Deep mutational scan, measured.
Amino acid sequence: MSIQHFRVALIPFFAAFCLPVFAHPETLVKVKDAEDQLGARVGYIELDLNSGKILESFRPEERFPMMSTFKVLLCGAVLSRVDAGQEQLGRRIHYSQNDLVEYSPVTEKHLTDGMTVRELCSAAITMSDNTAANLLLTTIGGPKELTAFLHNMGDHVTRLDRWEPELNEAIPNDERDTTMPAAMATTLRKLLTGELLTLASRQQLIDWMEADKVAGPLLRSALPAGWFIADKSGAGERGSRGIIAALGPDGKPSRIVVIYTTGSQATMDERNRQIAEIGASLIKHW
């Protein structure tokens, strides 16, 4: 067993022997301040990774656009098919120029040779490549099948209805392509620590998230040296922004954090800054 596999296998073990965790309302004060600064709703939840206990939450059962955070769930569904012998990570998928959609920095470079399922998941999570996500959605049967996968996990809230990039439209009061912070946090925890996926697939999923290259201005910008984070960000229309993450000190994750916002007129930089400040408060009061 590799060191990384050992780390993920012992996530519940280490967490069980940690000192009790206590909620700190100071972080919620910052979440509410972010709402004021952005002029928009902000949803927040913080779960203990081992027990699933909610440590703090704000608007945990209000719907927010998922945006690209759905790509972690998508690759979880792909990995479940791999575990069941219905898919192979090494299978190569070929596609054409007509398949390319807006923001496809990886797939646009491989029109000639195609990409493997493993490479597509890596591109979808680490670079948020939209064509990679659409190609992977095709392998599982489309958005409705991802929703069905989530329902089978016990998540009857999260739903995907459309493809990239239309799913980022974020129309107010439109339930399409949305989740709730509580539902997303619980589902992410199941994917990373539950028995739904094999140990190898859980490790692969967290490795992809740990290698995320496009979430630097968010929670990662607030992390002290030595902290662990595996995350996936999302951005959408109407001032929408979000991030889902597993993080913790001492090089291992111990909490799940989900943050979503929508309806702001603020710039992307300002949305990023507010999420980073929430992260800084979380870490300060850990």
Rank of each mutant, 00 (worst) to 15 (best):
T139S: 12
T69P: 04
G141T: 05
A133F: 02
P12R: 05
A266I: 06
M1L: 07
W286F: 05
D161K: 03
R63N: 06
T147K: 08
L247E: 02
T262K: 09
H94F: 14
E270C: 12
L219M: 09
D48E: 12
E277R: 12
W163D: 08
I171F: 13
T186K: 13
D36W: 15
E119S: 08
A124R: 00
A235P: 00
A235K: 02
E277P: 02
G39L: 11
A123V: 07
D269I: 13
Q204N: 14
D48N: 07
H110N: 08
Q274T: 15
K284V: 10
S68W: 00
E35S: 05
R41W: 07
A215C: 04
E166P: 06
L47K: 04
P172S: 12
D129L: 00
R271F: 04
T69E: 02
T116I: 06
G248V: 01
L247P: 00
M1P: 00
S68R: 00
G279A: 11
P12C: 13
E61S: 12
T261A: 09
N173H: 12
H151N: 13
R202L: 05
L137D: 01
R271S: 09
G114A: 05
E35T: 03
Q4K: 12
S57D: 09
A15G: 15
S68E: 00
R7E: 08
C75K: 00
G251S: 11
D129Y: 00
E87K: 03
F228L: 06
R162A: 07
D174C: 06
P105S: 05
T262Q: 02
C121E: 01
R238G: 12
E46Q: 12
H94L: 13
T126H: 06
I283N: 03
G85R: 10
S264C: 07
A132C: 03
R159V: 07
V82K: 06
N50T: 14
L49K: 04
T147G: 10
L150F: 09
G242T: 02
P172M: 12
S281R: 13
F14E: 02
T126P: 02
S240R: 02
S254K: 14
L150H: 04
E166W: 15
L47D: 01
L136K: 00
E119D: 13
Y103W: 15
G236N: 06
A200Q: 15
A84F: 09
G141Q: 07
V106P: 01
L282K: 02
S221G: 10
I11F: 11
N98P: 09
E46S: 15
G239E: 01
R63F: 06
N272C: 04
L10P: 08
K232C: 01
M1I: 07
C75D: 02
I140Q: 06
P25M: 10
T158A: 05
